[in-house]
Design a protein around this nucleic acid. Structure first.
Lengths: 111, 111
DNA sequence: CAGTTATATGCCTGAAGACGTATATATCAA
DNA sequence: TTGATATATACGTCTTCAGGCATATAACTG
């Protein structure tokens, strides 16, 4: 659970995952699509692989990467208990929010 | 969208969100529950607040924090397209996965 | 074998961020 | 006002990590 969030914190890695959602891709393929240097792509793929988010097969000289959903399932489960805050009607949310205007009078502070 | 992942990458911050899921909490409350120094809690709360994940109201000397679901809704939406990989049957997942055994012959490599 | 293509890794540097300590700010009570 | 309680911020330090560059490894071609 812990690593998933760290891994997803990187925009390029999220971009890779979204590309792999469409179809498998080779490193060079990702490189050209994301327009980032190849070592960068490879390093991100390594992180994704070690987090179980992708796996690869060898195809000639190429390495073709594909998604592995499991860690995302964990993320989905983590999100699950929060979902009641907005799903199935806003009532719970409103009950949660409607209590006070939050913002005090505010008489000019710093920043 | 970008900041949500960064904010959630911190374990203490996720812990705070999960505590706030049960009920509102003051800073000292969180401090005692999480057993972390108060400045640390306050800083994390600031990050959470600036990311829109919590809001606070003043109550005497205390500041009571509560959840704000919106950024989590975004996260939920981000996750949405991936959900077809495991939801509503594994067929899609299997179609995705069953193509090759991934692992090549493996004749003793490093690591 | 040598050469080419495709990908991975090592090393360095810079920037972001988490932590601890001290201190500032705010609110209440007397 | 003073003092106590509750929270926020500032500063310095240390670690982590992404980026860039060079180079190593692997697989194909001839």
């Amino acid at each position: 659970m812990e690593p998933v969030f760290d891994v997803l914190a990187e925009p390029s890695r999220r971009a890779i995952l979204q590309l792999l959602l469409r179809s498998e891709r080779s490193v060079g393929d990702l490189e050209r699509t994301l327009k980032r240097p190849q070592p960068s792509i490879s390093k991100h793929l390594r992180v994704l692989r070690e987090a179980g988010l992708v796996e690869s097969r060898t195809e000639a000289q190429k390495r073709v990467y594909r998604l592995r959903p499991e860690p995302l399932v964990e993320l989905d489960r983590w999100l699950e208990p929060f979902r009641c805050l907005w799903e199935a009607r806003l009532d719970a949310l409103e009950r949660h929010l409607d209590r006070m205007p939050i913002e005090p009078k505010k008489k000019g502070s710093k920043r």
